[in-house]
Design a protein around this nucleic acid. Structure first.
Lengths: 245, 245
DNA sequence: TCAAAAGTGTTCCGAATACACCCATGC
DNA sequence: GCATGGGTGTATTCGGAACACTTTTGA
């Protein structure tokens, strides 16, 4: 049992006899893999570092967590700074804690991913990055730190997620066509789908509501617009809707 | 940009002007939700705390991470101490970082889950816990800290995992009957399945190999024994086997 | 012989697949 | 008119659900 200024904390079974304080030496950061869907391609928002280490290299946006801050709040803060958006879809996916992952010391980072509607997003000027930009997930430059791993895990996580939950709608504007959804699934899963079958499948979930509205100014038959019905989804959820394709 | 003894670290965009060192004040722990399958019920290994805080309350086994240690190594260390086992299935599932989750200070904990074969497990005497025991997942006592949340998330994670990957075999001995698997799925998902259909479904995955062996000393027709073929699974994996029931 | 669980076969239905085809708009 | 993408219908196949039935062992 270890006694210290925090009280008796036998929660810890560590065998090495470090002073208790030495266990409180970790830095904690949050990194956000931000996805967007633009013109038929799935993109990720990256920043270019303005200083060493990894100066001029691209990286996943992130920040140290303050000791006063919850993890989730920290992710929201970063996202708001970077995109100017509140209330976007955010979820934690994995924590990266390799001993040597950060040259500045022992920093463990919690990976979050976010889904933003491209139309709403306003690029935000920032003092901590020399540049910022969207990258096609099929063409990512080498990233700083272990951010390649983080990005890979983030994409993998989203691909799995999308098969069981209707999260893709967070990447689309409130009104969209069925082909918009199909294009998004195709960009994400790198796979082509049969149009009539995709349409049947996605409508059979019962969570899409047709609107009395169609596309305008298109050089072909205008497509009907739909919206995602969150409440309908919540009531149907018990029966496990399957978004598998 | 922040300059300090670690060098120039503009990775961080924090706006409050805390000294850099103040960001390195986190404690980091690992908690392991250890699952076992005994006599038709799914169980979790818990320890009873021997001292304050939460004295005499049950908790998920865990420990502080040493600054010299990788996260995954830490989880393996805890598991080996507690069960005497190496090479068991371990996977990270979620990180819990609410500001007030630990009375001793700002401790963020990374949740892992492990699957152990009940036959192999040897209870290990420990100095940091006054008791240790398996609990049916349908009947868990109130737990210390935020361990109720951690356990709930761990179970949820395993339930999802089991639908896409053949992890359940890690809970069974190397040779098992088809009804063993069915019982395990039923205990995990709290649902009954039709025997003939379950059998067809699980055999259709192609990852089970029938052995030239049957049960002995049973008061009914002895069941054929099977083993899980990991290599076969790896080669079939591309075609996404579905373990959904 | 009987209880208990192992194991097989068959029917039915709905969902996924693979197509061929028609429709509305801008230019 | 014609290119372009929107949208519908159908025949076939495959897998899941439901359920009735036979087999093999110990006691």
């Amino acid at each position: 049992m270890i006694n210290n200024k925090f009280g008796s904390v036998d929660h810890f079974l560590s065998e090495n006899n470090l002073p208790f304080e030495d266990f409180f030496r970790f830095g904690l950061s949050v990194d956000c893999v931000i996805f967007g869907y633009h013109h038929g391609t799935l993109k990720v928002l990256l920043i270019q570092r303005g200083a060493d280490p990894f100066k001029y290299q691209w990286a996943i946006p992130g920040d140290l967590v303050s000791p006063e801050e919850d993890l989730d709040s920290s992710a929201e803060r970063i996202l708001q700074h970077l995109t100017g958006l509140k209330d976007i879809y955010v979820e934690q996916f994995h924590t990266f804690g390799q001993r040597d992952r950060h040259p500045a010391g022992r920093v463990v980072t919690v990976g979050y991913f976010a889904l933003v509607e491209s139309e709403k997003y306003q690029p935000v000027a920032s003092h901590w990055a020399s540049d910022i930009g969207w990258f096609d997930i099929r063409n990512i430059p080498p990233l700083a730190f272990d951010h390649d791993d983080i990005l890979a895990k983030g994409i993998e996580f989203l691909r799995k997620k999308v098969r069981t939950e209707p999260v893709v709608f967070n990447l689309l504007p409130p009104k969209f066509t069925l082909l918009d959804i199909q294009g998004l699934y195709e960009a994400l899963l790198l796979e082509k789908f049969d149009k009539p079958n995709f349409r049947k499948k996605i409508l059979s979930t019962g969570v899409l509501v047709p609107l009395d509205e169609v596309q305008t100014n298109v050089a072909h038959r205008p497509a009907k617009l739909f919206r995602f019905d969150q409440e309908r989804y919540d009531t149907l959820k018990g029966n496990t809707i399957n978004f598998e394709l």
